[in-house]
Amino acid sequence: MEHTGTLERILRAVALTLVVVFFMFPILWIFLMSFQTNETILRVPPSMVFEPTLANYKALITGKLETNAASIEINFLRNLWNSVFLSVTSVSLALLLGVPAAYAFARHKFKGSEDIAFTLLSFKFAPPLLVLLPLSLYFQKMGLADTYIGLIWVYQLICLPLILWIVRGYFEDISPDIEYAYRIAGHSWFATFRKIALPLAGPGIAAAGLLAFIFAWNNFIFALVLASADKQPVTVGALAFVTASGIQYGQIAAAVVMSITPTLALALYAQRYLVEGLSLGAVKG
């Protein structure tokens, strides 16, 4: 018995290590790459030993990319700002629209409400390109092409269904009796929504918002098609490192590190709120 237990523990540790290495190694490697020049990155055989340099980060921040052949202007910080701006405003708008809608879908079943909710979800099924090509024509006619407003609008395709469906589930988990009790105590339905439904679904709203933020941040295709360089987020902006004189692995790595840092930090920060979970201890099933 003891023997099996030990063996099991060892196997489990090995399996866990393999999984962690498999997922974490690329991140570690990117992190190491961001402190190297192209020469040290591309040497054969690769080595973990190198002289760290901040040149990549410097190039990104100053916006001057020094290659062997020439000095190229890049605007990475602008891309980073675009990412932050687009993601934050898109998620804020989606929360503003999606949370009340989710509450309505959860609490007020009406004829066809399921169909509407499903239609909204189905936006996520369609391949983005299918929507994008006609949309880019419309946007040009409407003057929305290459505008933040246009992009934020299209980003709702990513954020809104996600928030709607996740938050709706959380609202449905709240016992209606708790809300009834608050109404009976003499509060309006809107006060009930604000003081009971919103706080109780809080962790769910945070989770949905975070997830929507990550999806919006990672989006590539919408901004690639619908915006030009000065409105594009980092995902698209990173293409600039593929230059005529070669691929700037060092800068790409530094750019990746800089662009995943905000989402990573946000995820780590929000984690404790997400784990906290709903405490509906006052209600018996």
Binding site: S175, D177, A181, I196, L200, G281
Partner: peptide, 8 residues
């Protein structure tokens, strides 16, 4: 309420 329905 039967299930108390306290605000958790």
């Amino acid at each position: 309420f039967q299930n108390f329905a306290l605000f958790p």
